[in-house]
Simulated assay, not measured.
Amino acid sequence: MPLNPDSPLARLMATLPRAGKVEWIGLRPARDEAMIATGTVEAIAGAGLVGDRYKSGSGKRGITLIQAEHLPAIAALAQRPDLTPALLRRNVVVSGIPLVALKQRRFRIGTAVFEGTEECDPCSRMEDALGPGGYNAMRGHGGLCARIVEGGTFGLGDALEAL
C-alpha cells in the first residue's frame, strides 16, 4: 500500500539533507571485461549508458549507483585495503546523499533524469572480485538501480538532485 503523501512519515522520507555529487563513473563494455572509468557519459532514455553492456536492456537497470560512504564499509568487511570502485561493477559512485531514499523517486544528474527502481543487490562475481565473503560484504551496501526517464549527459562533479 502506498504511503499517504501528506503523512509525517512521507514528509520525513521526502526530505534529503543535500544534493549528492558524482565521484566516479564506469562502464562495462562486455561481460567479464574490466570496468572503464570515464569523465562523462551519455544516458539513453529507456535503455542505459552509451558504452555500457546493459544499454539495450529492459531499462529497469539502465544505470547502477553506489554511495561513496559505503566503500570503506565494504572494504573493511571484505578485508580489502585496496578497494576501487571498478571492482564493485557499479556505474556511478555518488557522495553526500543516501541512495536508498531515491528508491521509487526521480532524480537528476547533469541533463539526465532517472527513477530509482530497486536496491542493487551484489552478484556472485563479488566473491571473485573481493575474495571469500565478498558477496556478504556488499549485502546492504550494493546501491541503487535506476531507469533512465530522460536522456542526457553527466560527468564527474555533477550534482545528483532529487526531483
Rank of each mutant, 00 (worst) to 15 (best):
L88K: 00
D32F: 12
L49H: 11
V100R: 13
G151D: 07
V149W: 01
G131K: 02
K55C: 14
P98S: 08
G96A: 10
E127H: 01
H141V: 03
A137Q: 03
R108F: 00
G48A: 10
N91H: 07
L163F: 09
G26C: 04
A101P: 04
L49N: 03
D121N: 08
S56G: 15
I63A: 15
G57V: 04
I25N: 06
R90Q: 07
G143D: 07
G20M: 06
Q67V: 05
A78Q: 00
G131L: 07
I25L: 15
E33S: 14
G116M: 04
P81T: 06
L144T: 09
T40H: 14
L12P: 00
A68M: 09
E119L: 15
R125S: 13
A146P: 00
A146M: 05
R108H: 07
I44V: 15
A146K: 03
I36N: 07
R90Y: 11
R53S: 11
P72I: 05
G157M: 06
I97A: 02
A137T: 05
L87D: 03
A159P: 08
D52S: 03
R61E: 12
L144N: 04
T38C: 15
E161G: 00
G39K: 05
N91V: 07
R147C: 08
R105G: 02
R89N: 01
E118H: 14
S124Q: 08
A47F: 09
G134E: 07
I148P: 00
T84W: 01
L3V: 10
V149H: 04
N4Q: 01
E161P: 00
R106C: 12
P85M: 04
M13G: 07
G133E: 01
T153F: 00
R53A: 14
E127D: 09
G142R: 09
I36M: 11
I36A: 13
A43N: 06
G152L: 02
V41H: 03
T15Q: 14
A137L: 05
M126I: 09
G46S: 04
G142E: 09
A34F: 02
V93P: 02
G152V: 11
G39W: 02
A86C: 02
T153K: 09
E23I: 12
I109W: 00
I36T: 15
G134C: 04
L12N: 02
G142A: 12
G46Y: 08
S95G: 13
A78K: 03
G131V: 03
G140L: 08
G46F: 09
K103S: 04
V22K: 02
E119I: 14
L163V: 14
A146L: 04
E127C: 00
A101W: 00
T15A: 14
A68R: 14
T64V: 10
A73L: 15
A45V: 10
G133V: 07
I25Y: 02
E127R: 05
W24H: 14
M13W: 11
S95T: 12
A37W: 06
F114L: 13
P132L: 08
A112R: 03
V93I: 15
G134D: 04
V50S: 05
R105F: 12
Y135P: 00
L156M: 09
G143S: 10
P8H: 03
G151F: 10
A76K: 11
I74N: 01
L130E: 01
G155V: 09
I63P: 00
K55R: 15
